[in-house]
């Protein structure tokens, strides 16, 4: 049996949507997620043709053939500093997800999963105030259609003071419309706070140790969401009429360096670049120190509906907020 799922990535511009997606397969390959290792998920990019034909017939001539697809291009652009996704279209990427280890039968039975992940520029769904956005108005229509037809939404927000951002009004409006849309098929919505590594830049080699503590992540989420007015609107999605489950998590596409454990942002490079050995080029240079952190979490939850140590429900965050000050380890 194969289940097809569509997941829409939305969020403000420069929030890290494309980076999160670019780091997905590497995160799964390195097991750098909060699920038990015995789950043993595997994910591989597909072409659209293979996604459309669930049981694609492969000709012998194609068996060893490999054509660089959109996802490989996205990963290459990400390794070179990234390219801002334009507002001229929405872009679909396709994957096959399998779970090869232990999981409850209710989780495993529908698999393997064929995922269609829709990426779009932040300016389309969550535009900043007062900007004339797209050349193509039909892009908004297309994304709206995809949002209403998808089974899961991954909402990517940068870890900033939400109340001060220029896009918070647009985000609230989007959530409102999602809540009241009767024709939506939404089953899961994951709110991801990106750029998680930046909270730990002063901790040096201890950074990864702290980042790996789910209690720290839960505390960070509670703090980030403390004044979020739109949070209450999101709760409406979980009512019996809403029909969807909501989770919160954190992620870092750059992650933490292998061996050294510090946040993987090289302060000596222009722009934002990951650490790499001087004089080394190509895939080895890009991957030698790269360990993305939890970037698979939102997609695995969106597909499987299975919680990890780093996905938090409203109930968990509410409980945390109630006893916040007594157990706080950072403030």
């Amino acid at each position: 049996m194969t289940e097809k799922l569509t997941i829409c990535l939305v969020g403000p511009k420069a929030g890290g949507k494309s980076s999160l997606l670019a780091a997905l397969t590497e995160c799964v390959a390195q097991g750098s997620f909060g699920y038990a290792p015995r789950l043993r998920p595997a994910i591989q990019p597909l072409g659209e043709k293979d996604f459309r034909a669930a049981e694609a017939e492969m000709r012998p001539a194609d068996f060893l053939a490999h054509e660089e697809g959109d996802y490989e291009r996205l990963q290459r652009d990400f390794a070179q500093g990234g390219v801002a996704t334009d507002t001229l279209d929405t872009y679909e990427y396709y994957f096959r997800l399998t779970v090869n280890g232990e999981a409850p039968p209710a989780i495993l039975t529908p698999g393997p999963w064929l995922l269609e992940i829709v990426d779009s520029a932040g300016e389309v769904a969550v535009p900043p105030n007062g900007v004339e956005i797209a050349i193509l108005d039909d892009v908004k229509t297309k994304l709206a259609r995809q949002l209403l037809a998808c089974e899961a939404i991954v909402l990517v927000l940068p870890l900033v003071r939400l109340e001060d951002s220029l896009w918070i009004g647009a985000l609230t409006r989007l959530i409102d419309r999602l809540v009241i849309a009767p024709e939506k098929k939404l089953r899961r919505l994951v709110v991801v706070f990106s750029h998680y590594e930046r909270l730990f830049v002063r901790l040096g080699p201890s950074a990864f140790t702290y980042a790996c503590d789910p209690a720290v992540a839960r505390h960070v989420l509670s703090r980030a969401l403390r004044r979020a007015q739109w949070l209450e609107r999101l709760r409406a999605l979980e009512t019996p009429n809403g029909g969807a489950r909501v989770r919160f998590t954190v992620a870092s596409a750059y992650g933490f360096t292998k061996r050294f454990q510090n946040p993987n942002i090289d302060p000596h490079q222009p722009g934002e670049r990951r650490f790499r050995r001087a004089g080394l080029e190509g895939a080895r240079a890009a991957g030698e120190f790269w360990r993305p952190f939890l970037t698979a979490e939102p997609f695995l939850y969106a597909a499987l509906g299975m919680d990890s140590a780093f996905t938090f429900s409203f109930a968990q965050l509410d409980a945390r907020a109630a006893g916040n000050d007594e157990t706080s380890i950072i403030d």
Binding site: V83, A84, P270, G271, E272
Partner: peptide
């Protein structure tokens, strides 16, 4: 073309 967001000779992500 694609140019860096932090200026012509910058190293940040590029935009169309």
């Amino acid at each position: 073309r694609f140019r860096p967001e932090d200026g012509e000779n910058g190293g940040a992500r590029r935009h169309q």
